[in-house]
Design a protein around this nucleic acid. Structure first.
Lengths: 209, 209
DNA sequence: AATAAACTGTTAATGAAATAACAATACAAA
DNA sequence: TTTGTATTGTTATTTCATTAACAGTTTATT
């Protein structure tokens, strides 16, 4: 059950979201093909993932939704919860703050940072904005593990360096600048130009998903 | 040279961006290890990708930057260029519009759509916003190939259906709702909660990249 | 001319992920 | 009780992506 494949982890997150909707609809059991249908993958893949996390369904009822949600929670979340911050309160930063508001209890954005004095000390969707100079101290005080980088590309590298010094453990980079951080730090690169150009290539070549 | 691997296409986009910076610095030749260093991958991977697109470097000078940029352009871009639109002009939609402004000549955001009457007819960073009812007609008139979906999750599925009817060829989904569109349509899923939860999992398990 | 250094290009091996095929089981219906 | 059906769970295969190993080539240096 340890060291799950990359893609399985991504799907677990999606499974949970779909399952929470089921629970809200009072649906207590679900078959692999139903869950597969909700996120548009194959039933086999669902079953394989579920085996990987060490869960078993029952033959005529499928999987117990609550148990599965709880198990996925044990895998993705920590008991005490993790805290994240936004670095760079532009449109994108604000979009993410707002979007995450009240979505998860075990994974919360607790601080934002910006250089603009107008933004500092403002509160965006409940998240306070600090001056970038306080990055290190606030991260340590609030025990923030993950940083979401939404600053302009030119300053991304230097901010990442500061984050590393502050002891951050994961960085999600929405900046166009590829980052170079210690192997110890989880790094997710999500550059939007690449996403769009990739789409352009496949559209051009008439290839669907 | 046809049907390049998924990951190679992504890297080509990154190569080009790095190479354009080189050109701006008047650097006309580049070695595989230099290019690899810029985006933090291995030189072997760079060389493999370059072989795949049918290009050759020279032994003592490496790759000709201009030629490589031009070749990548021929692969990713179309002669006439592609047009894209934003559906949903919230913070995220505006962030993307602004971010893409003047970034690429062959890939341009030409329209935005929203239901809010206050936003309709506004121009965001040079991109006009139309009412969602005109989605189909505007897409056809402007020959828009790609839609970037930044609407609330609840309406994503119905918007996607309309996009499909309008003859869209690629959808980039920033919505938390997984989409189900025809196999013919390229679909990129970029849900931010999944990105963050994935980071949480790896941070929790002390696993870097 | 010979040698060494610094590359590119190619093939082979490995690893990760997805798919296919099928075995096993519980239940319903005849 | 038997048979059929729908489902899970498991193993094997295939496909895709990365890494490793090394062969080949040009140029500078001696």
């Amino acid at each position: 059950m340890k060291n799950l494949p990359d893609k399985t982890v991504e799907r677990l997150s999606q499974y949970r979201r779909a399952l929470l909707v089921c629970l809200a609809d009072n649906k207590m059991h679900i078959f692999s093909h139903e869950l597969a249908g909700l996120i548009h993958i194959t039933p086999v893949q669902v079953r394989r993932d579920i085996i990987l996390i060490g869960y078993s369904g029952t033959l005529r009822k499928g999987y117990d939704v609550r148990e599965l949600v709880s198990l996925i929670g044990k895998i993705i979340d920590t008991e005490e919860g993790l805290r994240a911050c936004i670095v760079g309160v532009g449109n994108l930063g604000r979009a993410i703050i707002r979007y995450f508001k009240d979505k998860r209890t075990k994974l919360v954005i607790t601080a934002a940072f910006d250089t603009n004095p107008e933004k500092v000390k403002c509160v965006f969707s409940g998240v306070r904005c600090y001056p970038i100079e306080q990055l290190e101290s606030v991260i340590r005080e609030q025990d923030i593990s993950i940083a979401i980088l939404t600053v302009p590309g030119e300053v991304a590298a230097s901010v990442a360096e500061t984050l590393e010094k502050a002891g951050i453990r994961g960085i999600i980079n929405y900046t166009p600048t590829p980052l170079n951080v210690s192997e110890k730090i989880y790094l997710g690169e999500y550059d939007m130009i690449t996403s769009l150009e990739k789409a352009a290539y496949f559209v051009k070549n008439n290839r669907g998903e």
